[in-house]
């Protein structure tokens, strides 16, 4: 095998020494995060079959909700977005290059296939005001909150 992942044989010095407890905790956190994504991520368990499901982050400010997804290898025509109520649906397909099926595969870590990803939004959004942008494998969707849900401050009266 002319090409193998390279690892240094000895780890001489670690940049930051974690205490055994911290290391244990961060390891557990990582397991749980992976597990949560497998079980709850992406609608009705499509990841259980081992296909590609894009990881997502959702952030909000007073007027907007921004959803970002990592979709390496997808072109705009491979993606479809729809909004209804407080739900954003991401549908798409990560295609595997045809050559890789016929030829010998050494190592296959990347996932391929169709996916449907439902993202629950914190409130209703205006379906007319959605901007989506795809650049270098990162999809950014900017949604505008509907008036009544945009962060309202509730004053507390003093009697």
């Amino acid at each position: 095998m002319p090409l193998i992942p390279w690892r240094k044989k000895t780890v001489t010095e670690q940049p930051k020494q974690l205490s055994p407890w911290e290391a244990f905790r961060s390891e557990l956190n990582r397991w749980f995060e992976d597990m949560e994504r497998e079980i709850f991520g992406g609608g009705f368990w499509p990841s259980a079959v081992g296909g590609f499901v894009p990881p997502v982050d959702v952030s909000e400010d007073e007027k907007h909700i921004v959803v970002r997804a990592e979709v390496p290898g997808l072109r705009p025509e491979d993606l479809e977005l729809s909004v209804s109520g407080n739900q954003l649906t991401l549908t798409g397909e990560k295609r595997e290059a045809r050559e890789s099926r016929s030829a010998g595969v050494y190592q296959s870590e990347c996932r391929y296939g169709r996916f449907v990803r439902l993202v629950e939004l914190p409130g209703a959004v205006d379906p007319e005001k959605v901007e989506a942008e795809l650049a270098n494998g990162v999809l950014t969707v900017k949604l505008t909150k509907l008036g009544e849900t945009a962060g309202r401050r509730i004053p507390i009266k003093v009697r």
Partner: peptide, 8 residues
């Protein structure tokens, strides 16, 4: 990064 390695 995740990689795929294919031999032709």
């Amino acid at each position: 990064p995740l990689v795929d390695i294919v031999e032709k």
